[in-house]
């Protein structure tokens, strides 16, 4: 049976959704070990077990060090003893840090941005390119365990009902200079509504809004519908809204029941992040905008007219 290792991302005893998604896939592929950095391994053992992990390898508390160097060093040492068949990460800030460090430690290549993992003649990753119009399937040819980075929302996070995972402490080798970066403060940006990547309704705005102040209409509409506000990369780059709003290849992947794209033309970079939405409504003045090719309802019109009218029609 294949040995599959999964990066478990947790915070204060709460397991991230992407970790549960990875576990759901991993347990179909073989025996699952979760690896983890932080002080909360015992707290999450039951949940990780219920989702298919039989064991947690943890570094324990890292005393405000960033997890990348420590977790990668510890896992590399452990992997050289046990030779897992594949090591899975979510495409997250933390996941990419650890995966990058680990790939160098193990001199192992990475296959990134995959949305599916096929167990055919060696594990094969499926990566969408060109805005999701083309799928590229890639597999490793070498001897080493393959490192895969999986995009969020690729698998359904369902519990399987296993026993609590056992917890095993990993030794962290001396990190030298690589361990010198320390977190001095943590800030949580409170928002009133649901989180962007978990919301049932997402309203996103793009360059077609004309100016930064008009993004308030997007916030207002999201608020009225009980959804979250998102943005195209163009207006994030322009500084209208923070990076955390960005929907797309670089940014959040969203799969809400309803996605409303206002003033977004549909660059491939954006479409990859939202084309999995159940339904899509697009408002854009250019009838040729690519976003219309995937919209269930497309309104060819001026967002400066349609959005105010829509806000008024919905009322409070």
């Amino acid at each position: 049976m294949a040995n599959i290792w999964v990066h478990a991302e947790t915070s204060g005893g709460v397991v991230s959704t992407i970790t549960l998604e990875l576990l759901a896939k991993a347990r179909d592929l073989g025996e699952v070990t979760a690896f983890h950095a932080g002080a909360d391994a015992e707290q999450v053992a039951a949940e990780l077990g219920a989702h298919g992990a039989t064991r947690i390898l943890t570094t324990g508390d890292l005393d405000n060090g960033l997890p990348g160097p420590a977790l990668a060093s510890a896992v590399a040492a452990k992997a050289s003893e046990e030779s897992p068949d594949a090591i899975l990460f979510g495409t997250t800030y933390g996941g990419r840090d650890v995966a990058g460090r680990l790939s160098v430690k193990m001199d192992a290549p990475v296959i990134t941005n995959i949305v599916d993992l096929l167990d055919t003649d060696g594990l094969t990753g499926v990566e969408p390119v060109f805005g999701g119009t083309t799928n590229v399937k890639t597999r490793f040819t070498g001897e080493m365990p393959g490192i895969f980075l999986v995009r969020p929302k690729s698998f359904n996070a369902e519990a399987a009902g296993g026993d609590a995972a056992t917890v095993e402490i990993m030794a962290v080798p001396d990190l030298g200079a690589t361990g010198l970066a320390k977190v001095t403060n943590r800030f949580v940006e409170e928002s009133d509504g649901p989180k962007l990547d978990e919301a049932g309704i997402v309203v996103s705005g793009g360059r077609g809004l004309g100016e930064a102040d008009n993004f308030q209409m997007i916030e207002d509409l999201a608020g009225k519908l009980g959804g979250a506000a998102g943005a195209s990369r163009a207006i994030v780059d322009a500084g209208w809204v923070p990076y955390s709003y960005q929907v797309g290849q670089t940014g959040k992947v969203v799969k809400p029941d309803v996605y409303i794209a206002a003033g977004i033309s549909g660059a491939t970079q954006h479409m990859v992040g939202m084309k999995g939405s159940k339904t899509i409504i697009a408002i854009n003045k250019d009838p040729e905008a690519p976003i219309f090719s995937i919209a269930d309802l497309g309104i060819v019109g001026d967002v400066h007219k349609v959005l105010p009218a829509l806000l008024e029609a919905i009322g409070d």
Binding site: P109, G132, T133, T134
Partner: peptide, 19 residues
């Protein structure tokens, strides 16, 4: 140390009503 096994068109999403 990896090989691309295939490059295939992804299943297309149908466009709906454009007005």
């Amino acid at each position: 140390r990896q090989e691309i096994v295939s490059i295939e068109p992804a299943p297309e999403r149908e466009a709906g009503e454009i007005i």
